[in-house]
């Protein structure tokens, strides 16, 4: 049964990796603007068309 302790530690470690990634993204302002990133996808396309 004691293998569960090892599994628990391993799973927590993985989870904490994701938590750190999340904290990093929130702190660097990646959740600040929820409108423009979705719109920007369309912009690049139109510029490429222009260059062709």
């Amino acid at each position: 049964m004691n293998v569960i302790i090892f599994l628990l530690a391993a799973s927590l470690l993985v989870a904490i990796c994701f938590l750190v990634a999340f904290i990093w993204s929130a702190r660097t302002g990646q959740f600040d603007d929820d409108y423009s990133p979705a719109q920007r996808i369309f912009f690049t396309e139109t510029i490429e068309n222009e260059n062709n």
């Binding site: 927590l12 989870a15 938590l19 904290i23 929130a26 702190r27 959740f31 600040d32």
Partner: peptide, 20 residues
């Protein structure tokens, strides 16, 4: 500080505690 930060952290702890 971004509002999602606190929410994410608490959600993480809550979920794991439930599981454990």
């Amino acid at each position: 500080v971004n509002k999602y930060l606190k929410l994410g952290l608490v959600g993480f702890c809550f979920g794991n505690i439930m599981l454990i």
